[in-house]
Design a binder for these strands. Structure first.
Lengths: 226, 226
DNA sequence: TCAAAAGTGTTAAGTTTACACCCATGA
DNA sequence: TCATGGGTGTAAACTTAACACTTTTGA
């Protein structure tokens, strides 16, 4: 045991819980798992993990995300700390929630399977363990507040996407319909959303132009409003 | 020692740090203290404290605020958890930052003195311990994002205030000048900012009408934009 | 009498919203 | 040939921003 100036004060388990958002079939989804350990094994929960002794809390969130998806270096945003005394029935645990946005096609499905993780629609979430529903609500609120000014929502889409997809994504996140022409007008003024020569023929007969997010362009003018 | 499902996992000291904002002489201020214990005793820091075993983290923040100001039931908002491995040189501590807004006249000055606490202008902060500057930056960012939609800023003013004071407060928080006529026009449309019969003769020769925040009115129509 | 803060409306510019039809194609 | 999603422009309503002078009174 190393000496400490603070040894008279109590210590607590500290965990991170990850709200992993995806977008599929016009719906915003979250990756949930059947809790693999006691207490309350088998209940729906967020993927979480205890912080390690020599690990930043942000690193812990990245590690947990990696364990479940196989993805590294994903942008994660802290939602906040949840620390009521009895929030976890196993013991006192202070948990810090983070959210991430992923293209569902990029996640490693074997890892998902290993962890009994499933994508569930935000519109019909199952009952969740502890305060995990609150964490998701907090994450969604933060996400909604951010998408108008940060380009994070593109993380949810494949590298090439149609404007209809992009609009459906914004509608799913904001939970409201957007006027198609107004949406396209605003998008067309953003230099970092680039038309490509590719045409998507999967979702429509006529074919839709595919667009791409241009990071370099975004870095030149990182202020926008959508 | 109670049994625990999680006893194999490490535990950490968990603290709260409070960013206490006040408003005086047209400036936004923060209550800072000279750290009263080792390590780094005497350096400028936020007022903080370790979370207790049977205490919610929100309660811990309220307790620390009370110790320093003598005030109960103050609205506090969580800024977030700070948890890099070496943020505190005394030992590993995960700290959760909260901010509060207070009318400087209401705080107990003896308690401030006991804790070597002083109001420092946000425009010329001293060098702060650890990551406390980051915490303040995070709090200010959150505060700025909130004041357009939440009536929290009134906590910084005395019960009766002039429109010039209110405008100066908004300017201090947002860090930019606001047009006087536009500001007053918007305020006059808010039903919960009420004119009183009182006149303030302290800050101007002519005298300025004193206004008051009407909580009941606000609860009826809690949506606004300023 | 003058310095200092209080109070007061209008107009132009910009932004946001509402709205409906034709196009291309595969089934 | 028709059902499906793709694509396009304008006008009205609303919101925001810019702007300058008169009032009151204590020193």
């Amino acid at each position: 045991m190393a000496p400490s100036y603070y040894s008279q004060y109590p210590k607590f388990h500290v965990a991170v819980d990850c709200i992993i958002f995806g977008f599929e079939q016009g719906e915003l989804k979250v990756l949930l798992q059947k809790r693999p350990f006691e207490p309350r094994r088998g209940e729906w929960s967020l993927m979480g993990g205890f912080v390690k002794r020599d690990e930043d809390i942000d690193q812990a969130a990245q590690r947990v995300l990696f364990q479940l998806t196989g993805l590294h270096d994903i942008y994660m945003k802290q939602v906040g700390a949840f620390g009521t005394v009895s929030r976890d029935s196993g013991d006192r645990v202070i948990s810090i929630a983070y959210f991430a946005l992923l293209d569902i096609d990029r996640v490693n499905k074997d890892l998902n399977h290993e962890h009994s993780a499933h994508w569930e629609s935000m519109n019909q979430l199952p009952l969740l363990l502890f305060d995990h529903k609150e964490m998701i609500d907090g994450a969604l609120k933060k996400l909604r507040a951010m998408i108008g000014h940060c380009p994070i929502s593109f993380q949810l889409l494949p590298p090439l996407f149609t404007l209809t997809q992009l609009q459906a994504l914004y509608e799913a996140i904001l939970g409201e319909k957007i006027d198609k022409r107004n949406f396209r007008k605003r998008v067309s003024e953003l230099p970092f959303i680039e038309k490509t020569d590719n045409i998507d023929k999967v979702t429509s007969k006529r074919g839709a132009v595919l667009y791409r997010f241009n990071t370099a362009m975004f870095n030149q003018e990182p202020n926008f409003k959508l």
